[in-house]
Design a protein around this nucleic acid. Structure first.
Lengths: 211, 211
DNA sequence: TCCAAACCTGAATAATGATTCATATTATGT
DNA sequence: ACATAATATGAATCATTATTCAGGTTTGGA
């Protein structure tokens, strides 16, 4: 069900020639660069266009308004993250719960670390944007992927996989987000890398039933 | 060491009469109300003043600029949260680790739920503000309080309390933040209320040494 | 070579918003 | 009651920004 907001968030026109695809790419990149270099408050359409090496008018050819641009950039980033997590989930299917747990945490952490700067830059954007649709879709996809691996565990089963998957996702995402996207240093990220696996394994073991 | 930003963030003048204290209160409240009712994008000095029932000029008598206002409002909220957590920590000192764990999680969750709306409103503000100083102070105070209770545990001791306290704090805060401050429903908060205690107890048990 | 579609340009428009300041009102101590 | 410090006012100023549009340039194919 396309929300009303879709009408104003969808791209105005779709690129047909190679140069315009490059333009859109440049605009995406520029958005993140401006965000990183100047902060969310100074993220203006003009500045983005300038940095991308195109005119404002060009920007408006592909994005009906600033919000649509931000939405697109954010979606792009989130989709990338989700892909990685889903891939990890598929790779871990059928292993023991210990392996699955460690693998999931590692994948999530890795994915976030890979896009450290982008993630931090986009954090600020998320706030001033209606995240409803994106967030929901995101949660759903990740949630289902995690449920799937958990169910596939070789040695255990869960009373309520849905709840367990949700908890796992929210906890790891929340912790990583709190540390990386805000002021946290990479050093603190390392603490997470060593502690989160312990915590997740402990939790999963606590709520699992032997098969 | 007062940062350079302090100069422009500190109140321009301190209230001396009762009416001005009331004014400042009204401004704080109005800020949150506007945030809640109109969103971060429409949070303007004029609107806040209007809602507070004072003129813009009055606002600028107490806050040198918009940022200072937001900083003050955010600090106020965070301090309130920290107080509650610290209080809980003090009350839990000397108990068994199981009791401490459950108590901490409950206190954190409770504190956040109490200020559900405010927290969500302020989430957006945090992004467009330099949170460095606040965030750091916040983490430090909570971290120390948690370290203290953990150390006081009757039945166990920890190899590295600092790391454990950090992990606990970040995980719980992150998970709760992810669910409450963003699109999450109260229903999801309930899941957290039942699962987080399990997870934290499992983690603490896993890393603790018997005394 | 030529044209229609695709693409690009950037000054102009129209709003909006943060911040100031000269002036007016109110409180407090004497 | 008076003087003085506190507090409040809000139109005016100065800047910034999202968005448009009338017209240019480039591309791919016939």
């Amino acid at each position: 069900m396309p929300a009303a907001s879709d009408r104003i968030l969808k791209p105005r026109k779709t690129p047909r020639q190679a140069r315009s695809e490059a333009t859109v790419e440049a605009i995406f990149d520029a958005t993140i660069q401006v965000l990183l270099a100047e902060g969310a408050a100074r993220l203006t359409t003009t500045r983005v266009a300038e940095r991308a090496g195109v005119s404002v008018g060009t920007m408006y050819q592909y994005f009906p308004n600033k919000q649509a641009l931000l939405h697109a950039v954010l979606k792009r980033h989130l989709d990338g993250l989700i892909d990685k997590v889903e891939k990890a989930c598929r790779a871990l299917a059928g292993e023991t719960i210990a392996v699955i747990s460690d693998g999931l945490v590692a994948a999530y952490l890795q994915a976030k670390m890979d896009s450290f700067d982008t993630a931090r830059a986009l954090y600020a954007v998320g706030a001033e944007l209606d995240l409803g649709s994106l967030q929901a879709a995101n949660s759903k996809r990740v949630g289902e992927a995690v449920m799937a691996v958990l169910t596939s565990a070789l040695d255990v089963r869960f009373e309520d996989v849905r709840v367990v998957a949700f908890t796992l996702h929210v906890t790891v995402a929340g912790a990583v987000g709190a540390v990386l996207e805000r002021g946290g240093s990479r050093a603190r990220a390392k603490i997470l890398a060593s502690e989160l696996p312990i915590m997740c394994r402990a939790y999963l073991t606590a709520v699992a039933k032997r098969k």
